[in-house]
Every structure is written in C-alpha cells, then in structure tokens.
Design a protein around this nucleic acid. Structure first.
Lengths: 152, 152
DNA sequence: TATTGTTATACTCTATAACTATA
DNA sequence: TATAGTTATAGAGTATAACAATA
C-alpha cells in the first residue's frame, strides 16, 4: 500500500475530514473493495454474498423483503437471484401464503458456499479493521447499526 | 417513511446485522440518498460537492490528489471538474512547480455555492443522525476516520 | 385497487487501456 | 522511464416505468 502523497496531507485538514457522510463513503469504499476481493475466489461480490447469506438463514425472505433490507430495487434482486439460481445456489419457492411471492432459499450447495464465503469475508474484515480494538469495533458496530436501521 | 415490513424483522436477526461491512454499506446508502437530495437544490451531488468543497479550501489540490483523496479514478475527476468549470465554479490553473499538473481552485461563485451547499448538507446530516447524541456522533466520526484513513 | 415479481430502458458510476505532454 | 491529465469504452450499478398474476 502506497504511503499518502505529501500533498494529500493538505487535504486531510479539509472540511470533509469531519464530515460523517464523507467518512462513511470513504470507509465503505475501502471495506467494499476488500470484501469484493475476498469474495471473488468464491465467484461472489458483496451484493450476491448478501443475498446468498440471507437465503441461507432462517428468515425465508421474499424478494421484496430482500430488496428492502439490502436497499436495492426489486428489479436488481431479480437478476441477483437469477444468477445464484442458475448456479444452483438458491431456489425460488412459491410462498404458500401468498402465491405472488417467491421465497428465496439456499440449496445445500448454497449454504456450503455461504459459510465458506463468510470465512473469507471475516478474514478480510479482520485485516481492514485490524487497527481497531475489539471494544472499538463493537462500539462502531452498535453506532452504525443505529444509523443503518433508524426505525429502532 | 414506511414502517419496516413485519417480515423484515426476521432478517434483522440475520448474520449480516453484525457485519460491519454490511452496516457500513447500508448506513452509507442512507446518508448518500439524504445528502444527494439535500444538495440537488444547488445542482450538486455528493461527488461534485466533495470536489467543489476541496477546491474551495486552502489545499490547492491537483486532480491526482483529488482522485486519491476521494478514492475516484483520475478520469472521473476529469469529468467532475469539467462540469464544475463549465458552470464557472472552479478553475484549472497550471501548477508552476509541475507543468503537467492542474491545480483546481474554486472561483468566488464556487466558494459561495460551496458554503451554501455545506449548510444544506449539514442540515441533512443532522436529520439522518438525529438519534445519536453529540458524544456518540463524535465517537463515530473518530472511529470512521480510523477506517477511512488507515495509514495513520 | 394494490402488490409481487418481471422486463425493458436509460442513466450514472466504475474500471481499464491508450494517448499527450511533461518530468 | 515514469507521471498528470485526458479520452474512449465497456461493464456494473441505479432508477423508472410498465406489465401479468395475484391479493
């Protein structure tokens, strides 16, 4: 990793350095790049990993629920699920309670991949957040959760 | 703002809810949407606001420095500066010390717009982060800065 | 009438490579 | 030989509207 250019240090004193939204964007860009790199060996990206991971859980989400939770447009979820389904990682099952809705559920292969991918993602996060203490990391997680789910 | 769907609460218990990268992505998406909405009245988005804001400061950044600081490709900075320059908000000045480099500096109109836009952005952030105490907000800012600028 | 999933489309963003002028 | 800016382009991501099936 290159050291910051000398002239960049002038920008470090700029107004943006105290701007929560800017810091959020930059930290997210760094974490996203590291996450995508860590997941690429599994044929996944952050997006598809999120969908797969949720499908592998107990929640049995519909596509609409996935879209809301991941802040994606429903039409984006269609193509993410299409891709995962083509690769045999998830299935669409009609919701018995509402025949309009598809419940997305991981196959055995999907659950296996999700758990392997989770290990890689965790290792990558470890590297990105290595400079934070366990306590800081927990604090950060709690504060971010408050921003990410403001209805609480 | 709609209340969360009942079925979404199942997803709230999922593995992703403890995933720092996921929370970062979701919080960023929320802040970005609010920021872009707040800036649209000024004809700006988060990206162009960042460039304008840095050009309005004391740092006199080159395009390359802007690209590194904002984690953008240099070619993206070209079109952002093009747009701002067309609107008379910034100028490109040749760097006397390196004639390859353009220093990007705000015009009077650019500085005025930057400062008006900063007010709007701050008000929007206030709304997004209203549920955090001042102390929590400061803690979050410091922790995010550690992630966003890991070389420190 | 409203909602779920889907398709289509247009637009923005991102990433890459190649070129020029300078260093 | 390397770097700053630029151009071009292709791919990914985003947003919107419309439609069929179902509620």
């Amino acid at each position: 990793m290159p050291k910051p250019a000398a002239a960049e240090s002038g920008l470090r004193a700029s107004a943006l350095t105290d701007d929560l939204s800017f810091l959020l964007a930059r930290a997210n860009a760094i974490a996203l790049a590291a996450g995508n790199a860590a997941l690429s060996g599994h044929g996944l990206k952050a997006r598809s990993y999120s969908v797969l991971s949720l499908a592998a859980g107990e929640a049995r989400p519909s596509q609409r629920e996935l879209a809301e939770f991941l802040r994606l447009d429903p039409s984006q979820v269609v193509s993410l699920v299409d891709d995962l389904q083509t690769r045999g990682l998830v299935e669409r099952r009609p919701d018995p309670a509402d025949r309009r809705a598809n419940v997305v559920v991981a196959t055995d292969a999907g659950r296996a991949l999700a758990s392997a991918a989770r290990e890689s993602a965790r290792a990558a996060e470890e590297r990105v957040h290595a400079q934070l203490s366990d306590e800081d990391r927990q604090t950060l997680t709690d504060l971010l959760r408050a921003l990410a789910f403001p209805e609480d």
